[in-house]
Write a protein that binds this DNA or RNA. Sequence first.
DNA 1: CTAGGGTTAG
Length: 601
Amino acid sequence: MNRTLLPKPPHWVLEEKFISLLQSCKVSKHLYQIQSQILTNGLEQDQYITPRFVAACARLKEMCIARRVFDEIPEPQTALWNSMIKGYAQNGLYENVILLFTQMTSMDFSLLNCFTFPIVLKSCLKCNALREGEEVHCVVIKSGFRGNHFVGNTLIEMYSGWRMMEAAYRVFCEMVDRNVVAWTSMIKGFILCHDLVRARELFELSPERDIVLWNTMVSGYIEIGDMVEARKLFDQMPKRDVMSWNTILHGYAINGDVEACERLFEEMPERNVFSWNGLIGGYARNERFLEVLDAFKSMLIEGNVPPNDATLVTVLSACARLGALDLGKWVHLYAENNGYKGNIYVGNALIDMYAKCGMIENALEVFNSMDKKDLISWNTMIGGLAMHGHGADALNLFCRMKNAGMNPDGITFIGILCACTHMGLVEDGISYFQSMVDDFSIEPQIEHYGCMVDLLARAGLLAQALDFVKQMPMEADAVIWAALLGACRVYKNVEIAELALEQLIKLEPKNPANFVMLANIYGDLGRWKDLARLKVAMRDTGYRKIPGCSLIEVNDGVVEFYSLDERRPETKEIYGALRGLTKLLRSYGYVPDLQELGQGT
DNA sequence: CTAGGGTTAG
């Protein structure tokens, strides 16, 4: 067929073609191809295509391309301005939103419409631009948009976000006809300030109460931990949707009532992925990791609600805590086969799971395969390496992190200091600690002081460690004294040990592990009289040390295993495996201290 | 093209 005989398609056909092309555009490369097609057709200033082009750029995080196109247009119309502003907001470039808005107002006031303000006001809140937010509010008034529901509501939201309740309430009162959304935002504002009394007053006054408003009020009580009032309200609701049920379920989960959580989950008329995540998250938050795995398995067996990234992350964190490597690997495969390969949350949870299960190689593989990494990815990997004796690799990775332009935070330095401790690099640890304060302006937290005490103490510098404790700007906690006490045993320092125990008894009088530690030191040194005295003191407290418990993956499950435990049918195999491990360790020169076996049980 | 409600990682 001769193409030249075909008539030129009408304008609107081309428009539709480009719009659908832009909507389905998945990679930046195609963006350039579409752009050149638009140019060859002379449509670069088309009032329908260009905003869509900008929207596609925003979706693919290519706002620079959008900006170049935008700058070429002599007199952009409102829709194009708005699409640029929205694109910047979507990509977190709030400063650009404000800049563009300023430019827009300085050019022509009539460019602004009711779609412009909500995005700009939200951006002001997000980047904490208080003065600019107030200026935009002035523009709202001058341009006559204060009567718009969307604009008014976003103003309430903005001021509430800054806890400027007088300003928020003034906007609310000045609204000529408030709808239920405005009431909800106002109530949400008081909830943010934990002012449940005023929130409830408004709730009672509201002329209309829809499900969203009821749910908001219920979650307000949940946030302040008042499950009784939350439940009372939930029971009074004229109508409930899945989200109402999920809200109260999550409330029990975060307030530590696992049993109520389970009961509610059973009662629910309908369950979606948030319901399952609520139950699974409830188990996880309350350290019931075995139940996390069981619930996850039930979810898969029931099969009508597929897990999402949040589910996988929670399950992986439980695997990490339990050492359930097989299930962790299974989740890894599941994630890759179900579109979570590039998911940063899942990637980070996988790194942590592999690291905690001792599979550093797998953790590194996941880390290296991630093309998007955030601070948590780096911190998890550095911490994982440090925790498992790869201190040098952890420090190297820290260098790579800085070279990649990623700014470390306090958690990063926990990993770094831990790496130094494990390698006995006292000098380096001290200089990293200094660098944290001087180069990165990170204020050391009690955990960092704890790391430093550990660093010094494990290196045998007990007196220096004690000095450090005394110089700390805050009171040392039990973790720090226990670290010091532990090191005292290794270096057989009774004086500091007794001092540390004295503090520990004040901080946690019910923890017999502390007495056991000092008893061990007396035993090591043959101070039997002191030992006897301590045993009497221990008996007087009436507390017994809880036996240490290990979790071991057996076939497709995880079992609890205590020291000298003979309850399990697998006992023989477990002790067999232990003997094998001990033998292996001996061949590397390790001498097990058999006296420790069964201590305190 | 614009407004109010849920989960997840170190």
